[in-house]
Nucleic acid binder design. Structure first.
Lengths: 198, 198
DNA sequence: GACATAAATTATCTTTTGTTAAGCTGCTAA
DNA sequence: TTAGCAGCTTAACAAAAGATAATTTATGTC
């Protein structure tokens, strides 16, 4: 079976020409983490600076608003990176909660440890750039959808581009990520399937 | 007068301990670019991979939607980086237009040239990380505002956090960046100033 | 299978936003 | 000074979304 390490070794080779045999110093510092459904990976107020590659399962990244409601920022599945961005980028306790929606398996590294490794092994640096650029690209794409599309258009796009996700995740989290209420998403679905304008 | 180079040299020292005297190889490849009001910096379909630091003025980053309408993604002013993200990250012709809203002065470098410099001068690498993280942080913050706040709340926050920007930029671009129409923004302003609930 | 619980839908009403078009205002250029 | 234009506001109506609550439909557990 193909593991996260296989995938990441291939990535390192493609990005930096590093042979799998030379990735020891990096993978020696990674940990496999298993989470069961509904288990929190990062809690609110936590200071850990974790970076992880999702091998299996889906992680929901959300925040508790002032009024107590939850708002889902991201839903991340297999083959995606997740990072505690409040602690890593903003250097503050995490306002976000990272929670498994399904049984999850992660390959994890502490960002501070990664930085130490990069000091002595700068050849891995392209991996960090790749990771940052990937996150930035995805984040900008979502931002773009908020300024160019209506909630219904965003939902339609999600259906075509990430159908698996929509089917594995409760609608209420999808709605929140689209910036609307679950009630409103339900009405969008009704409009779509009655008026038949696919 | 303090220049962009002063600012960036200070940044390089803070990030990587590089003395201003040792920044020659980097700044030798930068160009000062002046734009007049309404001049395009990057056009739709362009393939240039430009990265720039804004010394003076405001740049609007927008896209032409299928229906011909414009949607403003970003408004960037003094002290901010701008980058042609479609060409640099997505390696595709830019779908976005970067246009000066005021007379603009930029310190520009081609991203491909920067990459070459980084190969021979890896000591500048922290600058790239800083730039990527900064962009990611800002992008995630905007994304967060779309899933946690109403248009009115987003506008109020913009007023408190970027008052200068709101006052220097036509409302229609502000509205677009907030994901609403200019008419709707006008109504929000009316609600705010009549009902007086600041 | 029956029960308890969570999620999704539906209904009702209020609020907000979109759309279109008509004024109003301030700026610029002839 | 005036004519033209772009930006902002206002109005009127339609469409969509929010809030709340009731109902139906899964889902999971004993």
């Amino acid at each position: 079976m193909r593991t996260s390490i296989d995938t990441l070794q291939e990535l390192l080779f493609d990005l930096a020409g590093i042979m799998p045999a030379d990735t020891g110093p990096l993978f020696a510092m990674t940990t496999v983490v298993s989470l069961e459904t509904n288990e929190a990976y990062i809690r609110e107020g936590e200071n850990s600076r974790r970076l992880a590659f999702i091998e299996q399962g889906i992680i929901r990244v959300y925040i508790i608003k002032e009024n107590g409601d939850e708002a889902t920022l991201l839903l991340r599945g297999e083959g995606k990176f997740i990072a505690s961005h409040d602690t890593i980028i903003n250097r503050q306790p995490s306002r976000f909660i990272y929670r498994a929606l399904e049984p999850v398996k992660l390959l994890q590294i502490d960002y501070d440890v990664l930085e130490e490794i990069l000091k002595t092994h700068p050849e891995y640096e392209p991996l960090r750039n790749f990771f940052l650029m990937k996150m930035l690209a995805e984040s900008l794409k979502m931002l773009e959808s908020f300024v160019t599309q209506s909630p219904e258009e965003r939902y339609r796009e999600l259906l075509t581009e990430r159908f698996d996700l929509v089917n594995r995740v409760p609608d209420k989290y999808i709605a929140s990520m689209l910036g609307i209420t679950p009630v409103s998403l339900s009405r969008i679905r009704k409009r779509m399937y009655t008026k038949g304008k696919q």
